[in-house]
Computed example of a mutant assay.
Amino acid sequence: MPRNRYYQGPPSDHFDGVRFFNPGQSPTDRGLGDVLRWKLARGAARWPSSVPVTPAKPSPRVDGLRITMVGHASLLMQVAGRNILIDPVWSERVSPVSFAGPKRVAAPGIAFDDLPPIDVVLLSHCHYDHLDVATLRRIQAVHAPLMAMPLGNDTIVRAAIPGARCIVGDWWDTLSLGSDIATTLTPASHWANRWPNDVRMALWAGHHLDTPAGTIWFVGDTGYGDGAIFREVRARLGSPDVALIPIGAYEPRWFMAAQHVDPAEAVDIFRDVDARRALGIHWGTFQLTDEARDAPPLGLAAALAASDIPPDRFVAAVPGGVYDY
């Protein structure tokens, strides 16, 4: 029987003693045959090699709540005088190697040297487009922040950055980030790995932040499934003031539906939790899947119109975009 290299703990309703899983949801595992079927279909839209980005230059501190889009799932959250980075990636590629893999189309919405002092880094899972060791090393060298993440991810981070200050939790655990700010790790229907032989050995999650300036929910990568996990988030934690919801990386649906929502399902999540506002993330920076680069915001606009939701309540975030709440 294989051994989990990242986490050793008792079995639970989403951990079998070796691998984590999504209880009651469609399986996310895909074999080589599935990957070949997808890639040989040659259905991927052609993306531009680059798009224009006007980087923002953040203030050192913000008393209220300001979110600046870096790109993909990387955001700077400035809340109640604290600076929090989520899934930071400044690398040119998201891959185990620097010379191959999905390449950045949109430059970071904040130049690395323009970052304000970073107090906290939140990580959602260990896929390379979310946990980028090269970026984390740079952040550690300059800012030495507290890093909060789901079970098992700390082993990956500590192996690469021995001095990292990591705190970890399971789904529904609440972790203190200091200064009256805490994150509750929320379930997501996804998976994680760094290599072919460590699939689902580290947990994946969202982050629901309780702060003096409001509540913010970073949904994390997820399929929609039966929607039960989102309704449970609202029941347990209430409706967030701002939800950060993925809208991209969803085609072809036969391959992606169990692990990534499409724009219509993103709107379903928005409605399930009754969020006051939302930003659409996880699109337009790295071509991971088949849809055209502009398909996610177009799909989001159509889904909002179909649900009679004003478009200013759920906006597709662009790199360098600054959003005040």
Rank of each mutant, 00 (worst) to 15 (best):
Arg313Gly: 11
Trp38Thr: 12
Gln8Glu: 15
Gly9Thr: 13
Trp172Ile: 07
Arg66Ser: 12
Pro263Gly: 08
Gly280Trp: 06
Ala249Arg: 08
Tyr224Pro: 04
Met256Trp: 08
Asp308Phe: 08
Arg66Gln: 15
His207Leu: 04
Phe270Leu: 11
Phe270Thr: 08
Met1Cys: 11
Thr222Gln: 06
Arg236Glu: 09
Pro10Lys: 13
Ile245Leu: 10
Tyr325Arg: 14
Arg271Thr: 14
Tyr250Arg: 03
Thr222Lys: 01
Ala41Ser: 14
Asp274Arg: 15
Phe218Trp: 10
His125Arg: 11
Ala159Phe: 01
His190Ala: 07
Arg82Glu: 14
Ala295Cys: 01
Trp195Ser: 15
Gly17Cys: 05
Ala303Glu: 05
Lys39Phe: 14
Thr184Glu: 03
Arg293Glu: 12
Gln259Asn: 13
Asp173Gly: 08
Asn153Phe: 10
Asp132Lys: 08
Leu279Pro: 05
Leu32Thr: 10
Trp204Phe: 11
Gln140Gly: 08
Trp172Ala: 11
Ala164His: 07
Ala301Tyr: 00
Ala141Asn: 12
Ala257Thr: 13
Val233Phe: 06
Asp268Pro: 00
Gly71Asp: 00
Ser12Lys: 11
Asn153Met: 15
Asp324Ser: 14
Ile156Gln: 03
Tyr7Glu: 08
Val120Thr: 15
Asp241Thr: 06
Val322Gly: 03
Val318Ser: 10
Asp132Gly: 01
Leu36Phe: 13
Pro310Ala: 12
His190Gly: 01
Ala302Trp: 02
Arg158Ser: 15
Arg200Thr: 12
Ala73Gly: 10
Gly214Leu: 06
Gln25Val: 02
Ala317Asn: 07
Arg37Phe: 01
Thr54Phe: 01
Leu136Lys: 04
Leu298Trp: 02
Arg165His: 14
Pro48Phe: 08
Trp172Gln: 07
Ser91Ala: 12
Ala278Gly: 04
Ala306Tyr: 00
Asp241Trp: 04
Leu300Arg: 04
His208Tyr: 15
Gly320Tyr: 02
Pro52Ala: 03
Ala264Ile: 10
Asp119Arg: 09
Ser12Met: 08
Ala45Arg: 13
Thr215Val: 06
Cys166Met: 15
Gly169His: 04
Leu203Ser: 00
Ile118Gln: 02
Gly220Ser: 08
His207Gly: 07
Pro145Trp: 05
Phe314Cys: 10
Leu209Ile: 06
Pro311Asp: 13
His125Thr: 09
Trp90Met: 01
Arg276Gln: 14
Thr184Trp: 05
Ile84Trp: 03
Val62Tyr: 03
Trp191Ser: 06
Ala305Asn: 11
Asp262Met: 01
Pro11Ile: 07
Ile167Ala: 15
